[in-house]
C-alpha cells in the first residue's frame, strides 16, 4: 500500500498513528470529564468524548495494523 513507490511511504499508516494518539487523548479526557464536567456545555450527559475518542482509537489501531510497513 505504499503510495509513493520510491519512498515506500504509506500515508495511511501515518494517519493511523495520528488517529491512535488523538483517540487516546480524547478518550482519556472524556473519562476525566465524567467526574469533572465542563461548564456551559450542551449534552454533557452523552459523554461524547468517551465514545468518539474510543472510536478514533480503534480506527487508528486498525489503520496501523492494516497499513504497517512490510519488508519484502
Amino acid at each position: 500500500m505504499a503510495e509513493a513507490h520510491r519512498s515506500h511511504f504509506s500515508i495511511w499508516f501515518y494517519i493511523g498513528a495520528l488517529l491512535t494518539l488523538y483517540g487516546a487523548l480524547i478518550l482519556g479526557s472524556g473519562l476525566w470529564q465524567i467526574d469533572h464536567p465542563a461548564p456551559g456545555l450542551a449534552l454533557q450527559n452523552l459523554h461524547a468524548g468517551v465514545w468518539w475518542g474510543g472510536f478514533l482509537l480503534v480506527s487508528g489501531l486498525i489503520y496501523l495494523a492494516v497499513f504497517r510497513p512490510r519488508h519484502n
Binding site: 470529564q33 456545555l41 461524547a48 468524548g49
Partner: peptide, 11 residues
C-alpha cells in the same frame, strides 16, 4: 463551543 468539551474541542 456549544457541543465540544476538552479534547473534542482541540480536535
Amino acid at each position: 463551543a456549544r457541543y465540544c468539551g476538552p479534547g473534542l474541542l482541540g480536535l
